[in-house]
Structure formats: C-alpha cells, structure tokens
Design a protein around this nucleic acid. Sequence first.
DNA 1: AATCATATACGGCAAATGCCGTATATCTTA
DNA 2: TAAGATATACGGCATTTGCCGTATATGATT
Lengths: 216, 216
Amino acid sequence: MKIKIAIVDDNTFLISAVKEKLSFFEDFSVKFSAMNGSDLLTQLEHNHNLDLILMDIEMPVLNGIEATQIVKQKYPHIKIIMLTVFDNDENIFNAIKAGADGYLLKEINAQELHNGILETLNGGAAMNPSIALKTLKLLRNPLSIESQKDKEDIKLTNRETEVLEHLSKGLNYIKIAENLILSTGTVRKHIENIYKKLQVHSKLEAVQKAKRNNLI
Amino acid sequence: MKIKIAIVDDNTFLISAVKEKLSFFEDFSVKFSAMNGSDLLTQLEHNHNLDLILMDIEMPVLNGIEATQIVKQKYPHIKIIMLTVFDNDENIFNAIKAGADGYLLKEINAQELHNGILETLNGGAAMNPSIALKTLKLLRNPLSIESQKDKEDIKLTNRETEVLEHLSKGLNYIKIAENLILSTGTVRKHIENIYKKLQVHSKLEAVQKAKRNNLI
DNA sequence: AATCATATACGGCAAATGCCGTATATCTTA
DNA sequence: TAAGATATACGGCATTTGCCGTATATGATT
C-alpha cells in the first residue's frame, strides 16, 4: 500500500517541484494538491483517506497554520509536515501549537524529504537541525514564546552570537576571550557591536533582550 | 583541523563502542573520555580546547544533566550532545534546560552520529525524530514543564527583594536609589548582601540565580 | 576589481561595579 | 531586656565595563 500524500501550496510551480522530488520514490502517491487551506478542507470533505499533508504556511484565504489546526481537529490521523521557506520563531511556534508533526524547509532535497515523511509516519517528528535548535531555544526561554508580534529582526553574526552566549552565562571579558581564544580587546569590540545592534548599554540588558528575541 | 571530541560515560564498554563508531571518520579526534561528570570537569580544567562532548546521563558522582549545566556555564563554546539509552520526558527536558545542543540515543548508527555531530557544530541541534516529537509535545504543553526539583532555600529580606527586582530590570545603582529613595551607598550595600546570600558576584548572575529560584 | 561585512587587535578614558571597611537607628525575638 | 537581624549611610580602592578611536586581513558580493 502506497503512502497517500497531499500537497498544499498557493504556488503551482512549487507544487510541481515537490511532486518531482516525491516522484523518485515508489512508496509515495500524491493523491491531490490544494491552493490554500480552504481548498484543502473542501477536498478533504470528499476524501480524507490520506496519510500525510505537506503544508505551506503563507497562503491566501486560509493559511497553513489555521488549516493545520482545523485538519488536526477534524482528522487527527493525518500527519502534517509544514513545508515552507520561512523559519521564523513565530511560524514555528504557531505551527507546533496548531499540531504540526514536523517542520521542514523547501530547500530540502528529495532524499531528506523522503526520510522526514517516513519518520513522521513512524511516530517521530521531522525537522531539520536548524528548526530543532529553534524549538530547543523556545523550550529554554518561555519568555520568547510570549509576545512574538513586536519582535524586531535583529541579525547578529555567528561570532557575535557566540559571544552573547558566553555573556549570558555571566562570564567576564577575560573568560570569554579565553574560551574563544581571542584577545579581550576583540571580545569587547564584539560586545560593543552587539550593544549597538540590540540598542542596549549593559550585559544584563543585552542578555535579556537576546532572550526575548530568541537570539540565544 | 580535526574536530575535538570527548566522551563521558561510566560504562567503559560503551565508551569503546562510541569510539569505534567515530573511528570511521577521519575528521574526528577523540581527545579524552571521562567516567562521570566530575571526572570530566577535572579534565576540562587542564584542557578545555574542545569542540564537542558526547554525554551520558546516568552516571555516579555527577550525572550528565548536572555536568552539562556546569560545562555550559563555564565553557559555553563547547557543544554537548546527550547520548543515552533513556528518552523519557524528564531527562529530555532537563537536558535541554541544562543547555544540551542535542539528544541522541545510543542505538544510533555511526553515520547518523557523524551527521548529528556535524549538524550541531554547524549551528543546528541533533536529535532523532522520536526525541524531536517529545520536544514538540513539551512545547505544546507548558504545564508539563512545571515539575520542579529541590530548590535551595534562600531567604532575602523585603528590601533585598525590592532591590533585586530593580536589578533585574537592568537599572544601575543610581536609578535604583532614585526609585527606592535611598542613597546609592545603601543600594550597593544591599546588593553586596544579596550577592553573599546567592553566592554570586555580578548583577547578571544574581538575576539569573534569582529567576531559577523563583525569588523574582 | 572594488566594495562591503566580518573578525581580529590595540589604546585610552570615564563611569560603573564589586568588595572591603565602619557606623547608627530600629525592629524582632529569644 | 539583651542579642540579633535589618535598613540606612559614608568612604575607599582595584577591577570591570561601556564607549570612543584606529587598523589590518579575509571572505563575500557586486
């Protein structure tokens, strides 16, 4: 028995791309596709004999998060994997709350998509490592789960993030420099830049703002 | 430059098994192993030039969760992947809270362990799908996060608590003194006493410890 | 090839911080 | 009532921190 899959995306080109990826595997059968959440619900009315849905988030009429919530409510047996280009905290958290069983990015290759689907049907959750890390951070910082809306889009470099993590442990310049094998001067410069980006003026404020914005 | 790894497990047979798995890959170098968390900390004192630690949980003297918390505190640059046979919610959640960057099961094969390590060093989180699912569930049910353990019994005076609350907002001595209508000297003395009770040495540490102990 | 972002490093200075005293008034509690 | 805890206040000092420069090397982007 083949695994029955549906694809929901408002971009027909991307639907084709996903179908293409799935076509490599004989154990999959794409039953149908939908242009948005509402369209999906209509089709499910007729036929909900389905194993799994690959769901985009940004869609007109009824978005992927809302659709997921409704589908999970009505047809809990259908697994849902979010398949989207966006990996911002808000989407991830809302998708999980809505009941998604996995969260993958569209850039995924065919083999990994295949694995993710099988793992999900096998009682696991599909997510790539960067998404996994975000869920861990969300778990660590209940604060970051709160008001997601007014979050600014702050971009730190890798090095800055590393330094910030050390800061958050209460380490001073010297210890941070030791751990990262840097001069204290460089560490202090990084911190200076971090302050500017976060618009703060002390270690404490930096750490708090970073946590609220899920940077660490 | 090879990736520098340490293995922590109280079962020497299992250490050998992991080494065996890692030996297939030339980009890895197992720097040392430790029998428990305490042993690990001692060895890190001498050499913390390390990229990643594979950490068991159930160990005598100092278990993997506690060890993770301490290592992450002192050497935040070192990634830690829990590698254990148990995947109960309690362990997973505590490991994440302690700062683990991944959670894998010992039954993992060599190739997947290799991938997980690389993904983790690359800024992702390593976890197998069943663990991933559990983290999703933990995220969905904030209540399940409640169960707390033995917190120390730290007693602050009302005034100290007030000062601590101000501290936690990122205010400096002068602002706190203004708000509480005190001299800065007094505020500083209160903070001194707070530090002694909490056994910390900076504003940041004080706020973090206070939060962990529900003091503010 | 040129520009931009990033990572690295050094120096200086004023302010803030952490830690050590001491001291007094008040309030609890044994 | 006497002892202990608490809140208040002041002075000093070494270190850390926050902020301002400048500068070079590298890698990415255009």
